[in-house]
Amino acid sequence: MSAPLTRKGAATRERIVTGAATLLRERGVDQVSLDDIRAATATSKSQLFHYFPDGRSQLLLAVARHEAQQVLLEQEPQLSDLGPPGSWSEWRDVVIARYERQGTRCPMSALTRQLAPSHPEVGAVVAGLLTEWQRRIEAGLARAGVEQARTRAIIILAALQGGISLLLATGDSTALRVALDAAIADLLETPSGAP
């Protein structure tokens, strides 16, 4: 959309995106139509196409951006608090609980699979999510005084992504738990002399 949205317009657009995201999480991308989204968000057809003139694919891309933000928001405040002893185990528990709740249905993966062939910008959404996630982990490692924080952040994120992929394929979170625990094992230890 070229013209900036009014506050009311931005709220309406956000209502459509969050409503669509909720439906897609519950039913899956292939099971939700624009009519379903209109009904769930109390949106008229003209409103829907006002905010998403290119239709379903444009709305799905907006939902993918929303879901990417949710991945990080659902790790707060633990993700921003990474650094001191105890913070790593709290964050790990939040991440594992989030993905266990999600199970084998990942709206982000489903959206990117469906959009990727015709929407190259979806790659930028995924890349942006992973870059920001890595940056936030790296900041926590720096606060913890870890050397080569960037390299360690890459290792931790790779362990996370590998574990998440296996959970999505099998429905079993064991690989996610094992990989993440191995990647942050030394950060889970209490410093000597600490209670």
Rank of each mutant, 00 (worst) to 15 (best):
A42T: 15
Q31I: 03
W88T: 06
V178Y: 12
T43V: 00
K8M: 07
V94C: 06
Q161C: 10
G128Q: 14
A3H: 07
S44M: 11
T12A: 14
T151C: 07
T6V: 07
A194L: 08
T131F: 05
P77I: 01
Q78I: 03
G171W: 00
L130S: 10
L157D: 01
A149S: 12
I96R: 07
L168H: 13
L129V: 01
L82C: 06
A194F: 15
A3P: 04
P195N: 11
S44I: 09
A11F: 01
S87F: 05
V29W: 05
Q70A: 12
A127P: 09
S118L: 02
D30N: 13
E132A: 15
E76P: 01
S80V: 09
R136Y: 01
E76D: 14
Q134S: 11
T41M: 04
Q102W: 00
T18P: 03
P195L: 05
W88D: 02
A139K: 11
A39C: 12
R56Q: 04
A64M: 07
T190A: 15
K8S: 14
R65S: 09
Y51T: 08
R25V: 13
G9N: 10
L5P: 02
A124V: 13
A124N: 11
P53K: 08
A185G: 02
V95A: 12
E90L: 05
L187S: 04
D181H: 10
T18G: 04
R56G: 06
L82E: 00
L59Q: 00
R101D: 13
E14C: 02
A20M: 05
L79H: 10
L129G: 01
T112L: 11
P107Q: 03
I184S: 04
Q102S: 09
I164F: 11
A40R: 10
A127N: 15
S192I: 15
S165C: 07
E100S: 08
V71I: 14
P120G: 06
P195Y: 09
V95F: 12
L61K: 02
L59H: 01
S80D: 08
P84K: 02
V122S: 07
A127Y: 10
R98W: 09
R136P: 03
Q134T: 12
E100T: 08
A116F: 06
G19L: 10
P77C: 02
L180W: 09
G162L: 13
P120K: 01
V95H: 13
Q58E: 15
L160N: 09
I164H: 15
S44V: 11
L180R: 04
C106V: 02
V178S: 02
A11G: 01
C106D: 11
R13F: 12
T41E: 06
H66F: 15
G28L: 11
R27N: 07
P84L: 05
H119M: 06
G163C: 00
